[in-house]
Design a protein around this nucleic acid. Sequence first.
DNA 1: AAACAATACGAACGGTCGTGCTATCTTCGA
DNA 2: TCGAAGATAGCACGACCGTTCGTATTGTTT
Lengths: 199, 199
Amino acid sequence: MPVDGRVARGDVTRKLVLRRAVDVASVDGLDGLSLGRLATELELSKSGVFALFGSKEDLQLATVEAAFEIFRSHVVTPSLDVAPGLPRLRAICENWLVYSEKRVFPGGCFFFNVGAEFDARPGRVHDAVASASGSFATFIRSTAAEAVNLGHLDVDAEVLAFELHALGRAANADSVLTGTTTPYAVARRAIQAHLAEKP
Amino acid sequence: MPVDGRVARGDVTRKLVLRRAVDVASVDGLDGLSLGRLATELELSKSGVFALFGSKEDLQLATVEAAFEIFRSHVVTPSLDVAPGLPRLRAICENWLVYSEKRVFPGGCFFFNVGAEFDARPGRVHDAVASASGSFATFIRSTAAEAVNLGHLDVDAEVLAFELHALGRAANADSVLTGTTTPYAVARRAIQAHLAEKP
DNA sequence: AAACAATACGAACGGTCGTGCTATCTTCGA
DNA sequence: TCGAAGATAGCACGACCGTTCGTATTGTTT
């Protein structure tokens, strides 16, 4: 995109910083992010990293955006290749569980952690996190509604979407907190029961 | 308990500090807790607050314990007055939802926030949070198993308990993040469907 | 009455934080 | 070729952090 070699160089560094930032934030939160820590770990100068983003808050916002892109590429985009309705709904759930289970972010789902961190605080970071989280919730809900409209399921689509999203997040939370993988198995059993064929 | 008037005075201050600490931590996390902030807000000296707990980590541990006591008094204890099995399971869910909805902690469920904050970090605080969280999960699970054993329900008790816990936490997360109360209504519909009488 | 223990304070410590200035180097456009 | 623009580094700042120390006050124990 940038034909300018200067900003191209900057974008390389920005990408480098952000990839590290999302990993750090998934474990220590967006508040646990510090310019000095990022700079030291990446062998850059603190002021250089600072200048690249303008402020701590802008770095946090860029981190949220970068994480959302990674999230979409693992969960949303591949699901769109699957047939609408029930098959796609199943794909979303499975892709989400794999995304969490494989620790695409070392601390588990980025938006689970950061959402809990900023849920009760005002500000631009809260709004960005809420927007990303809400966008995915809408995606599940509309897919569930589609499955109902196509006659694949006969349930309350809103409740179903809420339930599936809840099960995934609970599996993520329990697994990361306890260091075990059994929560994913339990969640899969529950999801399977919800998404059984009902002709 | 303490007949010593000195530690009695200290316990008053400790209780004062901890009540503020759990509120602060429910919004800004246990890392957002700072001795200086607590001391300033309560008009105490920073070193005095520090001496009362010995270290920052010990303050965090005491905060977790204090929060767990509040949690139990709102959710667990009142449920034990209800008949075992399905009635008690219903009571647990409703008490939990009310506990979250009424914002007993200003940032929503304390253990949801702090659990997400410390899930991927090692240390004593993580262990304390995991222990408290696991203790409640066990409580739900055993109550669900009891309901099944009593013939009140005919389902997989482990999956049911996981599902109910997941629904409550999701309602809490969505409500706090979006500032709305509709997630509680959706969760209640889902829970009701799970806990319908099946004779 | 004397020795001890716990609370509470104020001042200071070394450290890290985000941020601001300034300078150097590379790359672009005229 | 020259000056503007962006990336990056070095240095210093004020603020806040957790922690330590010395000390006064209050209560207990002997």
